[in-house]
Design a protein around this nucleic acid. Structure first.
Length: 990
DNA sequence: ACGGCCACTTA
DNA sequence: GTAAGTGGCCGTC
């Protein structure tokens, strides 16, 4: 673009640049929420935007004539990542994801812009502000006037003789005077002031202790940032001087961040932004589809478009498409899928009339249509060309969301290689993109040739990455953490996203599994193609890259299709069941956090484990000889059956407990009882078993989990495995590494920090009892925690009247067992077992306890009442744990569910608290420039790996984040206490 | 090859 | 008495 260009601007021209991105957010927050009545599609921001745009097009910017724009464009942010993130990775890093109901509106607002025949500009790698700066500078240089429509103070640096700014929402214009009022300097010095003062909203650091006032004063005095920094020693105020010197570099970076780039190589030249005549029918078609009746009428009148006969645009937004009901009601009568689900959704039989869509009726309508739809796995497309793939990507932009799934060579996300991926943009509209399938023929050397015609992996990633990372397209996956881990190794950071597994878990925890096959059968009445039908199982299992592409397409595209349909069913339940906050604060944000923890892994000392295995084997061999000697014959010690025959048959010892199947139990407690009676064999067995466990489960197995590339062990966390909200860990399970015995702790010692680093272990002290004290509102417990007392000793003192000073350890131990029992939904039977006392004695203890702490009994009774009435209980943060069978007549089962229901809010609330801490932890560490990495979570404990030099600074931050994890959502009435320490290995850190 | 059972590890 | 996962044995397919 140059002045010689035929489309150059002149002094008579007037360019209007609308800052689309900030407008979207402001329209969203300033206006009441609005949804399209037919299907609940959120359109509040779209409506605000359309009204603003229309008004602007009609009335221009001022009442006087002659001010009409000649050029006009709306500018949007393209993606979150820009060159500023390379200068400063934390730029805008603390920004929360856009609200759920705003996400589908990003795409709609772009469509609205085009529907009004207005230029819609965005460019990868640049913020809207940079494009605005570039266009404004170019237009002003050609003598044209420029008006920026925005309220963003970051744009004020652009204001000048030719460039004005107007905030249409606040009806306020900004000139040099207003800039002076806001920043204390003119537009040409705004960036100097911003560089010093920083900006918490955009995470621009600035210089600590300097705000806008001080910054303006300093710039007034020194002229600009560089001069100020050079002469910083001359500042009188001590702290200010020190900060200016210490944070000089940070100020320079800040200046780079706030300086708008006004030389973007724009794809659309400024001269091309000519205003064009509005296409009435096009605008009306769009507005009708949005059902903005008033504006539709107004636009039709003004443009002369035919209001009645123009049809609403057909928007392919399947996530918000209300299914047609033709013939559906008749089919439903015979539906046999009712059961507990139908009973749990009271609105199911009363479809709301159109225009009366409530969250409940939307959820019900979705469930019903999903049940009644059919799935045809032969109708999917195999995408073999870049052009087709681009069309699918365009489709995703069009709808604003896309279901997404990866196919790989392994269940282990850390080793899996991408074989293909599938997309779905509407029910039944899904495709598979094979990328690395190989011929089955070349099996002699195992290495088949790549099947011809597939898009190259590199090309496919290039096409997909912008869409997968674009905030305007919601990515929907089942168990996204897996796909996230795979895709991150191909350089793709999937965002934003929804996870159907977590949606199901959020609304239905306890009602059954959350795996895709199970959810599909539950909600869609459809059994997906089993994986083993495609790849086989066991030894003869083949990897997915060996699967024929047509079979792979049916399987893989079906997964995306099913995922999309499940999303349509489950997402509305967040609103109908009032679980959106739980999902958005406790579930979804955990996905990237856990994925990164898994990706980091932890170092284990292979040689140490190998030596331990040898030691354990030696110990076992010695014990084995003694055991066989005592038994008088050789037998398999690891076989409870054979052991039982020896002990209770041959040797005639008295049997204690029976197992579920009627056999005599040989459990440790039974063997210990026998040992107490003076028998030699049982204690040897117990000892042997302990060594056997340590060897097989830990010292033998752990080295097999060391990743050959990273040389570290990467566990896999499940977010949706427990009823209470706890995580679980598997392959290997790093949440049950031994700690109790000396032999066991040797295993723990093998978990080590990387060279130059330490492990920090930080754990909540007594978090479950604290949560209980809060929930049940127990004054003595709360006081004890406030005073930092030994809680078990205090309990013993309350119950038995013995002073805490010089208390018999056995008395304290009993109180401790009772406290644990309370958390577990105490029974006399269980307590008696634990303490080795009679049921009667245990019952007396419980009675005494309830007399001293009547609030606990009240809490337990209230919880039982709740679970019987509702079928679920809730945590302090609103998480639900369902017990659908609690009303069973079987008294043992009933008591079991009641105890579980008593425990769930306690265990679950503690889990919620740790989740909140985890979600915040990484940002807080980076904000302080700390390099600590969160590696493991063990229910009330977090393990970090930290550079040695940073240990001292890191520990207080970790403790602070954990201890304030409830803020600001909830004020806990007891303090949380975190103990943290650092060491070279996990045992010593713990 | 798979699944139930038992035993043992953790919070 | 709550919540998990894993390994060995052993019967069944």
């Amino acid at each position: 673009m140059s002045i010689q260009d035929s489309s150059a601007l002149t002094a008579d021209d007037h360019l209007i640049l609308v800052d689309g991105s900030t407008f979207i957010f402001r329209a969203y927050h300033a206006l009441p929420p609005l949804t399209r009545k037919s299907d609940g599609l959120p359109v509040g921001a779209v409506s605000g935007f359309c009204n603003m745009l229309w008004k602007l097009l009609q009335e221009g910017l001022s009442p006087e004539p002659g001010d009409e724009p000649t050029h006009f464009a709306v500018i949007f942010d393209h993606s979150a990542q820009t060159f500023r993130n390379e200068i400063y990775p934390d730029y805008k890093a603390q920004r929360p994801d856009p609200p759920e109901d705003l996400v589908p509106q990003f795409g709609l607002i772009r469509q609205a812009t085009r529907a009004f025949s207005v230029h819609c500009i965005e460019q990868e790698g640049f913020e809207a502000d940079d494009l605005i700066a570039t266009y404004a500078r170019q237009a002003a240089a050609q003598g044209a006037r420029v008006t920026i429509v925005s309220g963003d103070k970051d744009l004020m640096q652009l204001i000048g003789p030719k460039v004005g700014m107007i905030d249409t929402m606040k009806n306020k214009t900004f000139g040099e005077a207003e800039v002076f009022e806001k920043f204390g300097v003119g537009p040409d010095k705004v960036i100097e002031v911003q560089a010093l003062a920083g900006d918490s909203v955009d995470n621009v650091p600035g210089v600590p202790g300097i705000g806008i006032k001080t910054a303006a004063q300093l710039i007034e005095e020194f002229g600009d940032l560089e001069t100020l920094l050079e002469k910083a020693e001359t500042i009188k105020q001590k702290k200010r001087r020190e900060n200016l010197i210490e944070f000089a570099e940070q100020a320079r970076i800040s200046k780079q961040l706030v300086t708008l780039k006004d030389d973007v190589p724009v794809e659309v030249p400024v001269g091309n932004l000519l205003v064009s005549e509005i296409d009435g029918p096009k605008a009306v078609g769009f507005l009708k589809a949005m059902s903005f009746t008033t504006l539709t009428k107004r636009v039709a009148e003004t443009t002369g478009a035919d209001l009645v006969n123009i049809e609403a645009d057909e928007f392919d937004i399947p996530g918000w498409d209300v299914p047609d009901h033709k013939g559906r009601l008749a089919e439903r009568a015979g539906g046999g899928t009712g059961g507990s689900e139908a009973a749990m959704t009271p609105g199911a039989d009363t479809p709301a009339p159109d225009g009366m869509m409530t969250p409940q009726s939307l959820a019900d309508a979705r469930a019903e249509s999903a049940r009644n739809s059919t799935i045809d796995t032969s109708a999917y497309e195999t995408v073999m060309s870049a052009d087709r793939l681009k069309e699918w990507v365009a489709d995703a932009y069009e709808t604003g969301f896309v279901a997404f799934d990866t196919e790989t060579t392994s269940l282990d996300a850390m080793q899996a290689e991408l074989v293909g991926l599938s997309l779905a943009t509407a029910p039944g509209k899904a495709c598979y993109v094979p990328l690395a399938h190989v011929d089955g023929e070349g099996d002699l050397l195992g290495g088949g040739a790549l099947v011809e015609g597939q898009i190259s992996l590199k090309n496919a990633i290039e096409i997909l990455k912008p869409m997968l990372e674009d905030p305007a397209v919601l990515k929907i996956a089942q168990n996204l953490k897996y796909d996230w881990l795979v895709m991150t190794r191909y350089g793709v950071d999937i965002t934003p996203f929804d996870d159907t597994m977590l949606l199901s878990y959020t609304v239905d925890a306890g009602k059954g599994g959350n795996g895709m096959d199970e959810l599909s059968e539950r909600w869609l009445g459809h059994k997906p193609i089993p994986f083993k039908d495609i790849c086989g199982s066991g030894k003869s299992m083949i990897t997915f890259d060996k699967v024929a592409i047509d079979k792979a397409t049916a399987y893989a595209a079906e997964d995306a299709d099913v995922t999309l349909r499940l999303w349509q069913v489950l997402k509305p339940r967040l609103a109908s069941d009032r679980m959106a906050t739980v999902y958005e604060t406790l579930e979804r944000p955990m996905v990237p956090v856990l994925a990164r923890m898994e990706q980091r892994g932890i170092s284990v000392d292979r040689q140490m484990l190998s030596r331990l295995s040898g030691d354990f084997a030696q110990g076992m061999a010695g014990l084995e000889a003694e055991i066989h000697e005592l038994a008088g014959e050789n037998f398999n010690i690891g076989s409870p059956k054979q052991l039982g025959d020896i002990l209770f048959g041959k040797m005639g010892l008295p049997g204690g407990k029976k197992t579920k199947t009627g056999a005599w139990s040989t459990s440790a407690s039974v063997l210990e009882d026998l040992a107490a009676e003076g028998h030699a064999l049982p204690s040897k067995i117990v000892e042997w078993r302990q060594l056997s466990k340590l060897k097989s489960t830990y010292s033998d197995a752990l080295p097999g989990f060391i990743n050959p590339e990273t040389k570290r062990v990467h566990t896999s966390y499940s977010l949706a495995a427990t009823t209470t909200g706890r995580l679980s860990s598997s392959e290997p399970n790093l949440q049950n590494i031994p700690v109790r015995t000396a032999a066991g702790r040797k295993i723990r010692k093998a978990f080590v920090a990387a060279p130059g680093h330490k492990l920090i272990s930080a754990d909540y002290s007594q978090i479950e009892l604290r949560v209980l004290a809060h929930m049940a509102d127990i004054p003595q417990l709360k006081k004890a925690f406030e005073d930092g007392l030994d809680i078990h000793a205090m309990t013993a003192s309350e119950m038995f009247g013995t002073p805490i000073e010089g208390m018999d350890p056995m008395v304290r131990r009993q109180a401790k067992a009772i406290n644990f029992g309370i958390i577990y939904g105490i029974s006399a039977f269980g307590l008696a077992n634990q303490l080795g006392i009679s049921r009667g004695e245990a019952g007396d203890y419980i009675k005494t306890y309830f007399e001293r702490f009547p609030g606990i009994r009240d809490y337990m009774e209230a919880t039982k009442k709740q679970v019987h009435a509702n079928g679920y209980v809730t945590t302090i943060f609103g998480r639900k744990a369902h017990y659908p069978d609690v009303n069973t007549k079987n008294p043992n089962m009933r008591s079991f569910y009641e105890r579980a229901a008593i425990n769930a809010p306690i265990q679950g609330s503690a889990s919620d608290i740790l989740r909140r801490a985890m979600v915040r932890m990484e940002d807080r560490l980076t904000a302080l420039r700390l390099d600590a990495q969160m590696l493991l979570q063990v229910h009330d404990e977090l393990i970090f790996e930290v550079p040695e030099a940073q240990v001292e600074d890191t520990i207080p931050l970790i403790r602070q984040v954990m201890e304030t994890a409830c803020d600001p959502a909830l004020k806990l009435s007891v303090p949380l206490q975190v103990d943290a320490r650092a060491a070279d290995n996990w045992d010593e850190a713990h």
